[in-house]
Nucleic acid binder design. Structure first.
Lengths: 244, 244
DNA sequence: CGACCTGTTGATTTAGATCAACTTACGTGG
DNA sequence: CCACGTAAGTTGATCTAAATCAACAGGTCG
């Protein structure tokens, strides 16, 4: 049985904006169904198009681009609430691939109904554009991190970001959150080698700032980690964002 | 005297999508006026909000983020047709700053009318979201470049991109385009030091792939430069994109 | 049990950063 | 008209953060 948008467990979280009854009714119609996918399944392919758009309901994945020689760049980590396929929906094709890291449940939308969304529900279109702007903002931050920060700062930045995102989603258990990725994924996200990422993680562990093992990330002192990453203790994540 | 949207010299270019008479009429009303700004003027500030949104009509500038220690990351180069202030218009604040590099003419829009745009002109809202998706796609590409490419590939990639963008805007004169930036700007865009950027430019010059001097970039063989950058001779730029 | 995947650690190499001069070009003011 | 200051570009010498290479350990799965 699929979850009705009315009962969406995600939307109840304070990190998401409330939705009017009318909007909810529309989303219910817009949603084609749900899809459960396995660990390590490709969802969208770079350069291709897709008749479907998705919102991650549960589980985690990642967005990535890969070059001809096999080099891979992780663009972002996909967490519950993330919208997938905007580029496919608007432009001809995706600029990156999306794949699952754990088992995931996805809300499935019909790409061709996207235009209807703009036409009949401007507040939903506004929300969608907002999400695009949030992603753009994040990518700018990531670009700064790859371009100007040291390995230690990069790793601290990424772990802090993930910790914050997972926390506002209510997935934190005291000082720890689930983090089912491999070190290789983090390395590919930060433009570092696997070996150096591993050594940098060891340093942060020794400093008592972040302990990532067994698929869980422990951050006893987020402010300390923020200082290590040389970022102002983020508050941007506080503002509720839309959910599609 | 300000240019009427009907007579917009930019929109006539084939790289932009055509607009219906109705859309044009709306844009005319949406546009508050024009603004001519001088070289080196800040347009939007990171972390702040703005009552106005802009489209670059002529001139060049750049988007950048800077860290507390003065480190600067150039996010993208601003060319005619670029929309400025999306983040300010939707979220609370800008994630990056925008400043002019040459004298620029900007079309000025009222931020508070943005909602009206979504409500009454869905095809314009669609166009705006499309632009956001284009930017997101570009940033993904940039992230890949900073994370996984060598200095030579980075510089080649950036110069090729600029050459292509300026070419479709009709600003190319045979094999050369105007490029009024400093080497420091390019270095800050690519996450390289100024000195190394300079040396890398010298290599590309010696290889006969790109010659950038006196504010002009000469690219005798774009395909060769693309090969040097290790990118498939881009065709994505061929598809017309919307203009706001 | 052996193959494979992920993580860990040490030794060595290298791409690019940093440091330091020096050159042009372009004002600006005496 | 020239002295001076400043901004951009260029080049060589040196240093270092991170890559690469290599080996091994613990888990898991067929």
């Amino acid at each position: 049985m699929t979850t009705a948008c009315t009962d969406c467990p995600l939307r109840k979280r304070p990190c998401f904006q409330p939705m009017s009854a009318d909007e909810l009714a529309f989303m219910e119609r817009f949603k084609m169904g749900e899809m459960v996918i396995d660990t390590g399944t490709p969802i969208l392919m770079e350069g291709s198009n897709s008749p479907q758009l998705y919102t991650a309901l549960s589980g985690m994945g990642l967005r990535s681009k890969s070059g001809r020689d096999g080099a891979r760049q992780v663009i972002n980590f996909v967490l519950p609430g993330d919208f997938l396929g905007l580029q496919a929906g608007l432009m001809r094709e995706m600029g990156h691939s999306v794949e699952s890291t754990t088992q995931m449940t996805l809300c499935v939308f019909d790409r061709s109904a996207l235009w209807l969304l703009f036409r009949s529900h401007p507040e939903r279109a506004f929300a969608l554009t907002w999400l695009a702007a949030v992603e753009e903002s994040f990518l700018g931050d990531a670009l700064f991190t790859l371009g100007r920060r040291s390995a230690g700062e990069r790793v601290a930045w990424a772990l802090l970001r993930l910790f914050q995102r997972l926390s506002v989603l209510g997935m934190a258990d005291r000082t720890s959150v689930p983090l089912p990725y491999r070190q290789q994924d983090l390395a590919d996200a930060l433009g570092l080698s696997l070996v150096h990422t591993n050594k940098t993680l060891a340093v942060l562990r020794r400093e008592g700032l972040a302990e990532w093992s067994g698929g869980r990330l422990h951050v006893p002192d987020p402010a300390g980690l923020a200082a290590r990453a040389d970022v102002p203790e983020e508050d941007a994540a506080d503002m509720p964002r839309p959910l599609i």
